[in-house]
Design a protein around this nucleic acid. Sequence first.
DNA 1: GCCGTTTTCGGCCCGACTGTTTTCAGTCG
Length: 662
Amino acid sequence: MVSNAEVAKVLEEFATLLELTGADGFRVNAHHRAARGVEGLTQSLAALAEDKASLTAIDGIGPKLADKLVEIVRTGTLAELETLRVRVPAGLLDILRVPGLGPKSVKAMWDANITNTDALKRAIADGSLLKLPRMGEKAVAKIKDSLAFFDSSATRTHLGKAAAVAHTFVTAISALPGVARIQPAGSLRRGKETIGDIDILVAIADDTTDRDLATRIAARFCSLPGVIHVIAQGSGKSSVLYALEGGLGRWKPTPQVASTKSAELTASFGSQPAAPRQPSIQVDLRILPESSFGSALMYFTGSKEHNVRLRERSLAMGYTLNEWGLFPVSERTVKVSKKAGGFKAKLAPASGSTNKVAGDVIYADSPALPAPLLPPQDRGVKPLASASEEEVFAMLGLPWIPPEAREDRGELNEAGPWDLVTVADIRAELHAHTTASDGLLSILELAEEALRRGFHTIAVTDHSQSSSIAGGLKPDRLRAHIAAVREANSKINGITILAGSEVDILTDGSLDYDDKLLAELDVVVASPHAALSQDPAAATARLLRAISHPRVHIIGHPTGRLLLRRAGLSPDMPRLIAAAKEHDVALEINSHWMRLDLRDTHARAAILAGVKLAINCDDHERSDFDNLQFGVATARRAWATPADCINAWPAEKLHRWLQSKR
DNA sequence: GCCGTTTTCGGCCCGACTGTTTTCAGTCG
């Protein structure tokens, strides 16, 4: 079976290759959009493909793309894609990933027979790259610089690692005088499971008389310990590469891949260190006036697709939206051009008039405008809204939409209010390990930590016997452990300690303890740990069997994936969700940033089907409790409310539900 | 390639920045 993610990947590659061959940009964009749509789909595409009408009902999918989707589901690929793969050298895709190089430049290189990064390095070394159109000294130097860091800069970074980096920057910069507000934006603020680069917004007072303030903030930003390369440094925008630590908590660091650079090329790039460079992440800093903070925050939080929808909505309402604010569209001044000796302004109609763009209007004697254009405020145009996100959304007739929901998945059609689950709503942890297996805390230490964080319930769920590496408990040890949990529970006030187990789901779907022992436990979290490369059919059967077991409360990290590391199982998720509904089993969102499993789109599908979610930290040590924010972010990306999450229920309701399976 | 409170054709979001140019193309988010 072809998964939605695989279909999206095929479409994405097709769009990229189309772009390189110079296809119409809107056609390219339509394919990129379709890929994202498929990726975010909650139903299985393989099932939808039976009926073409259900495909064209998806936003952005027309008749032609529907045919392509059917073809991909049936064959795993596209005939057109295979043709392009033959035509377009694979190495061009590597060149395209170099920062600063887009489809037009790469196409020009292809025409000059530069078809991989090694050839590009040679063309830089022998000066032939300079002969290409629009390739001057500076452009070539920039490409050379980017190439030097290309091998080491990770394309994506785990949410938890990126959040820690952002925290470092926010702490350092918020301490500077004159910083009115500071806030990470981008995919980090949206809680995406992996992060490309980190955006940080800083607001300074509009009426500041300190002309060097922004410059000083940027200077501090670029000189923080850990910054290994400054890409750009200015008073409005700065970008740096920041060194990432290799450690992944209880997962071992990724082994360094040896450089494949040939000796000859190393010689021509001799000024760069030859040893494998440290993995890094790009961090962008934007500095802007406080009066634009709301609209800028929306702009830089994205997603890009969500922003496009907002701007379309703005235009339809007679406004135009940009990072400086929401403006009446009739005031729009777009481009300065000396064509025909005057200034050209593209005017769109005001509200109530025709929806067609009126076209270019030439002003013969417009006063000279400074270049680059000042923000509209400084040209005497007042924004209708800009200081806060709430007021911009309100002007557009929308409730404030949480950042996690800004993915162009229909959020603009929701009436609101958006009362999504928050970290403060979570009052129970139902998946935690002690020193009895591979945890670092005793039962009481674990309970005290949970109490400190305001929880009413903590479940002790050590590993079962098959997880021998993790110190899984044989039945006799488990019975003694249950007794120890009961005793600890009698000694502590203010929190309930439950006796549970994280029971292995064995390869065939059976559980790692017999039914009699399982019945003695207050909480059973059943999780797959081994045989994580099973084929989808076997994985589906395995998990369905565990879900239908009458003693199971929660399926822990259902796919066993490790982000950027291991794909894990690919079961037929719609079937698992239907079974979870039928047997009243909760599906876990494991909050560790290496897992975030269930992923957001599957959790969304579960909620739509009426399946309960459990947001657990899978604690092994104190700091693991801090990962709750990432599990909650994933749940919020699935539009989960407190009612959807059993950890947010009051104690009596939760305990009654757990007891119903005994 | 998609789409329609006027559209089945002609639109498709917006601005900053950079470098290469003498008025603008490419890239990025």
